[in-house]
């Protein structure tokens, strides 16, 4: 920013500020604005669902309808991709979905940091999913889980090559899983900020600038709507991929 109010730094919104400095054993585990937003996300998602489901009317109210739609949405997604056995993982998938959805939507507030626009956050979520699939797969199927890497109907000669490629492909999952969410949120917020920056810079140039600023302002408004869609879509995509991976943990055979 450097003191110049007409220059807008599109990266500044991702800056992490320490709110309560904490250091344990040489590691910086301070409570930051990102941590605060995560706590708010958890409290909002949990609180909303708790309040919405507390009345339990047969004819649902508005809040209860929303929570029922969310439940049905994730439950049918999980059942479709992982079968009824996959419903054991429903609390996990639903928690992930709600957390990412609320965090993405909170990121749309001005001055709020978008926690999912940091690779470390999405990577942590993706690694949790990856490890859970690995552990659950080994737990349920034992060594049979490794059948996942051996496609059926492959000539023996090609087997080592194919298995190596399948193993690498499996290991790439947490990367593409996390990068997809992170990159979408980051790119969307930067674009939004750049167009808003145009509006600010142009209006400081006087009358001509005011007229010229109409176009980027329209873009910014449109992009905001698009960002809300992406906020939902990316939470959906993250949960969907989790469901697909969970299916592999349950049914590794071919």
């Amino acid at each position: 920013m450097a003191g110049d109010p007409t220059k807008v730094d599109p990266i500044h919104q991702f800056h992490i500020n320490t709110l309560i400095p904490i250091e344990v054993g040489g590691y910086d585990i301070s409570f930051t604005n990102s941590s605060l937003l995560m706590v708010i996300s958890v409290v909002l998602a949990g609180g909303f669902l708790f309040l919405a489901t507390s009345s339990r009317g047969i004819v649902p109210g508005r809040a209860q309808s929303i929570s029922e739609i969310l439940y049905e949405f994730i439950a049918s997604m999980l059942r479709d991709s992982a079968g009824s056995q996959g419903m054991k993982f429903f609390p996990f998938v639903f928690t992930l979905f709600m957390f990412i959805l609320v965090a993405n939507l909170l990121g749309m507030f001005p001055y709020f940091i978008t926690v999912t626009s940091h690779l470390i956050v999405t990577a942590a979520l993706a690694v949790v999913v990856f490890l859970m699939v690995l552990i659950a797969g080994l737990w349920r199927n034992g060594l049979g889980f490794f059948k996942l890497f051996v496609p059926s109907g492959i000539p023996v000669v090609l087997m080592p090559l194919v298995v190596a490629i399948e193993v690498i492909s499996f290991l790439t999952r947490p990367i593409s899983h996390s990068v997809r969410l992170f990159a979408n949120m980051l790119a969307g917020h930067i674009t939004l900020k750049v167009f808003s920056g145009f509006v600010v810079s142009l209006t400081s140039m006087g009358a001509v600038g005011f007229v010229g600023a109409i176009l980027p302002l329209g873009m910014a408004v449109g992009l905001t709507a698009l960002e809300f869609l992406i906020a939902f879509l990316q939470a959906y995509v993250f949960a969907m991929l989790t469901c697909i991976y969970i299916n592999d943990a349950i049914h590794p055979g071919h």
């Binding site: 690498i168 492909s169 290991l171 790439t172 990367i175 593409s176 997809r180 790119a187 879509l233």
Partner: peptide
């Protein structure tokens, strides 16, 4: 979105 998805998949493979 598709472009982002496909490129991230490809790069992830090479990186790993």
């Amino acid at each position: 979105a598709v472009a982002l998805r496909l490129s991230s998949e490809f790069i992830a493979g090479i990186l790993v």
